[in-house]
Computed example of a mutant assay.
Amino acid sequence: MSDPNPGTVARRGNGSRYLFLFLLGLVVGAVAIVMALRAWDARKDHFPESLMHVQGWHVRQLAKAVEQNRCAATDTLPHFKALRTTADDLERAFPGLADDQRFTQAASNLRGTLDAALASPPLNCEGVARLNKDIGAGCKACHQDFR
């Protein structure tokens, strides 16, 4: 069997080339978008979110201590200290709210609650639970107005 027209070249379609270039463009575009989003996220100030995460973690640790019936001052005092230390940074973490009277009052009330906890730590789980509820109320007061 021979080709009746030996001078003609068999033509293949370009569809596979176009598909390859399309897929390559999708991959390069996805990589470029991810890089752009990460660069944009890197410019963002993560301090306020980090502060809230750290404080939330310590509040959850206090709740866990109550659940596990581990409410001695040696178990809870480190969390109260950390909460008090981070409460000092609330105005710096949210500079746009530092002039708002409600915000500064909520932050001051939270610090007052934590100062009382450090001055006279609760000695049983009921006291820790009550104090954790007061801390949560201080957080909630701010979050209701500004979140």
Rank of each mutant, 00 (worst) to 15 (best):
M1Q: 11
M1W: 02
M1T: 10
M1R: 07
S2H: 07
N5W: 11
G7S: 15
T8M: 05
V9E: 11
R12A: 15
R12T: 12
R12I: 14
G13E: 10
G13Q: 07
N14K: 15
N14H: 11
N14A: 14
G15T: 12
G15S: 08
L19Y: 09
F22E: 00
F22N: 00
L23I: 12
L23M: 15
L24H: 06
L24M: 11
L26H: 02
V27P: 10
G29W: 10
A30D: 01
I33K: 00
V34T: 14
V34D: 13
M35K: 09
A36N: 01
A36G: 10
L37K: 12
R38P: 00
A39S: 08
W40Q: 13
A42N: 05
A42D: 05
A42T: 03
R43Y: 01
R43A: 10
D45G: 10
F47Q: 14
F47K: 09
H58P: 01
R60I: 03
Q61V: 01
A63T: 07
K64P: 04
A65D: 04
Q68W: 06
N69M: 08
R70C: 05
R70E: 14
C71S: 11
C71Q: 03
A73G: 01
L77H: 09
L77P: 13
L77D: 02
L77F: 04
P78L: 05
F80P: 03
F80L: 00
K81G: 03
K81D: 06
A82N: 08
R84H: 12
T85K: 04
T86G: 00
T86V: 00
A87C: 02
D88A: 13
E91Q: 12
A93K: 04
A93G: 14
F94W: 12
Q101H: 10
R102F: 13
F103T: 06
F103H: 01
T104F: 03
N109C: 00
N109E: 05
G112V: 09
G112F: 05
D115I: 06
A116N: 11
A116K: 09
A117V: 02
L118G: 05
P121W: 01
P121L: 07
P122N: 09
P122V: 03
L123W: 00
N124L: 00
N124R: 08
E126V: 09
G127Y: 06
G127P: 12
A129V: 12
A129K: 11
L131M: 14
N132W: 00
G136F: 03
A137T: 06
A137C: 00
G138Y: 07
A141E: 14
C142I: 13
C142Y: 08
D145L: 07
